[in-house]
Structures are given as structure tokens and as C-alpha cells.
Amino acid sequence: MMKALVFAEKADHFNRISSKLKEMGFEVHGLSFAEANADHLYISEPNYDYASITAAMEKISDDVGPDLVVFSSTKLGKEVSARFAQRKNLPCITECLNLEVEGSSITVSRYSLGGKTIAKLRTSLPGVIAVVADAIEPSEQSFQMNIQDFEIPVSNQIRTVSREEKKREAVGLREADVIICIGRGLRKKEDIELVKELAEKLNAEIGCTRPLSHDYKWLPEERMIGLSGEKVSPKLLISIGVSGQIQHAVGIMNSKTVIAINTDENAPMREHSDYYVVGDLYEIIPELIRNL
């Protein structure tokens, strides 16, 4: 039986990945910071230092001899996967959306060309991949659940001075039935109030494009929809003042119906819309609120 070795700092990510691997027929070994589903699991104190985790994975890998080493494609996961792969002189593919195994090779899909395309890549095992855990639908699998404690070796390549959790609102973008997504067509931060009014009428969550969350900081990062943010799948997505760059469009592709309001008749957003309204959001939204 082929063996997989998993590291994910979040138990939820770990379980999604391990269920997928189990489904594919792997014996699943893993390192995590909390109890999670695996055949053989090492649990350690939380540690967010790449050098320490790389060293830990190296040690476990030398014991287990995995065919495939899988990380969650978070920032930490990507960072460690590449360092680990280089140490073991293995190929590594990050940001994998899907994986299939055929004999001694693995095929993965990932976005390419900035999200314009999806590339399918095949590499032979042993290998390393980092998987976007949220792209995996978890399944019920039964595991041996051999669990043991593990002490991660301490490294001081870099020293952590302080760590501060980002203040996160609980945002239900992923579960929302209706989402209103705003972009740079909004002129100023105060105008979000107008959108909020519409959102309340529709019981909708508000999401945004990257410039609004990361450059202007009008909304928190967890509301960002796109390639490097949330990928959503509501029944209805109303896109307001969004140009529709592919990096954003990737995040809304699973929406059932998309309505867009844009002043530019030929913005890329049009291609990603079922209903494309050409007009001024400042005129249309108040009218729309009145009509609902």
C-alpha cells in the first residue's frame, strides 16, 4: 500500500486532505497540532516556524518512507513544502485543486497564467504537493488512528519577536445563499453603507475584490473573494462595480446566478455574468432597494 505523509496546521484542513488520500487508497501518516484523522498521527505542540516543521517532517519522512508528502496550501504550508522538497530533492507542486493517482505517478490540477487557465500536471512519485484544502470535499473514511506525541525539534534560524492573531470577523461567505460583492467602482468607503442597506434587504453577505480589502482596507481580508481569497458558491451573487479581472472571477465561478452592475459595457465581468447591468450603481442601487 502506498503511504502518504500529511502536514496541516489546521485540523479541518488535515481531515479534508487525509480523507481524500484515504479514498485514493493511501495509508495516511501525519503531523498535526491537534487530534485529526490518520492511520498514524504524530501530535505536537503548535509551532509555526518553517525550519522546525521542515526538520520534523524530514525526521518523520525518514521513518515512514512516504510515496507522497502532502501539505495544506496555506502560506505556512507552501513555505514548508518547498523547503522540504528541496531538502529531499523532490519535485513539488503547490496550490493543487485536485489530485489523482495512477500507478506511480500523480496528476494534479492548479490554476495557471494568473487564473486564466487550469493546468493539469503529472509528476512521478515520490513527490511533494501542497493542496488547497477547501477545494476538497471531505468524505467519511475509517482510519487506524494510531496516535503518538511528537516533539518538534527547535530551530532558531529566525526568531519570532511577536505574533498577533488577525482579528477575524466570523464571515459566512462560504455558506451564504446571497452575496453582494463590491469592487473599485465604489467611490469611497462611506458608500459601503448603501451596499449594506441592500445586503440587509436580501439577507446577503458582503464580499469584495482584493484592492478593497488589501490596498484600501475598507473591508477585512476575510471578505476578499478571488484566487488568493475566498471561493464562493452562493445561489445568487450580485457584483457591484467589479471589473472582473480573472484573479477575482476565479472566486465566483461556482455561483449559480451572477448579476453584475458596471458602468463599462465591455468590462471582463460581463463574460462572468448571467445578467449584466450597464449603468451607474449610485442610481440603480437606491432604486433597487425601493423595489425590494
Binding site: 513544502s81 518547498a82 528541496q86 503547490t94 496550490e95
Partner: peptide, 10 residues
């Protein structure tokens, strides 16, 4: 383009 993010680590 690729958003692979491996270079610094490697």
C-alpha cells in the same frame, strides 16, 4: 502567473 511560491524556500 504561476503563483507557485517556492523560490524563496528552495
Amino acid at each position: 502567473d504561476d503563483y507557485s511560491g517556492q523560490m524563496a524556500s528552495r
